[in-house]
Amino acid sequence: MDRPLFRGNFKPYVSPRDPCPPILVKKFVLPPQIFTNFQPPGLPQNSPAEALKQGSLWPAFVDGYYREEGIS
């Protein structure tokens, strides 16, 4: 899984009167499925064990999510 492919970011306006230390770059999720209108046939598949672990039979639609990414 190439997670950066499924993430975006933007630089919000920073005001000198913002009370919290500003986060200069905000990240957000662009999940894999939004780049496809229709799943093409014959995509590579996970093994049954890996499919249950990842939550999908097709690794192409798995992007994972970890708090360490610092998205919120």
């Binding site: 894999p32 499925q33 939004i34 209108n37 990842q54 939550g55 999908s56 639609f61 798995v62 999510y65």
Partner: peptide
Amino acid sequence: FLRERENIHSLRFR
């Protein structure tokens, strides 16, 4: 796992 299922369901509805 549950988050990933939302990805797949979203895809299927699309």
